[in-house]
Design a protein around this nucleic acid. Structure first.
Lengths: 123, 123
DNA sequence: GCAAGTAGTTACCTTTTGGTAACCATTGAA
DNA sequence: TTCAATGGTTACCAAAAGGTAACTACTTGC
């Protein structure tokens, strides 16, 4: 069974149930860096996600009150997604995570480059 | 297909691939609040997780270098899990997330209590 | 009159994930 | 002599998640 993140006890489990899962935090992070993003823009920024899954994630985030959906009945229709005030409260946490990600990435790159460096040094 | 978090481009996607998914951030958070926890303790702290899944998560975190496994060949065996230095770098982010979680939980509790308050006020 | 473009939805099928129960080793205690 | 205790593993099965292709609506431009 998937974690019963609804029924609970612990606030941490509850928030994790809302924002965890494949793609979800990534979507939140993209939205937290822009005023708003259209469906197609999100789709382009996350090439490996299918429309079905992207829709599903956005609907769930909307249901949790973290994302706002602004449907403009133009032709063709235009839909803007943005963080709600509550969603925006995740900005700092996501930035913090991104900083750790950048640090680890730099460290790992450096490690992976050592062999190359040795080859150059040996010439 | 599950997100291809290995092959990538973006550090944020990469870190999310390592720490996201059901139970994983929760395990990290529990470990970030203790020196170490034994398998059975983690199991007891997360009642809904099965041994199979807990093992799987711990093995993956170990493979990512975020968790250290200390097997003591006593009888019966004792295994201590703790965060590595890299894993410990997530502490602040997890604390930040927990603070947001506590705030939302308090807000939601307050909102859920309003009807009760109204009933009392109406008496 | 047909294609393009947006933001999806739906049905169908495959893959992945997770649960459950049984089993493992080893030794001390009842 | 048999049970309990720890930290798992394995096989088997059910459920959930996700991919793909087809289809929707509506109007503008070719």
């Amino acid at each position: 069974m998937a974690p019963k993140h609804e029924s609970n006890q612990c606030p941490m489990e509850s928030i994790l149930g809302q924002i965890m899962g494949p793609w979800t935090p990534y979507i939140l992070w993209l939205l937290s860096n822009e005023e708003s993003l259209r469906f197609g823009q999100l789709s382009a920024l996350i090439p490996d996600i299918s429309a079905k899954v992207l829709t599903d994630r956005l609907r769930k985030l909307e249901a949790s009150g973290l994302v706002h959906r602004d449907y403009q009945p133009t032709v063709p229709p235009t839909v803007y997604y943005s963080l709600t005030d509550r969603g925006a409260e995740l900005h700092e946490v996501l930035q913090g995570l991104n900083e750790v990600a950048l640090r680890w990435d730099a460290e790992d790159r450096k490690k992976r480059l050592i062999p190359v460096t040795e080859i150059i040094a040996a010439e």
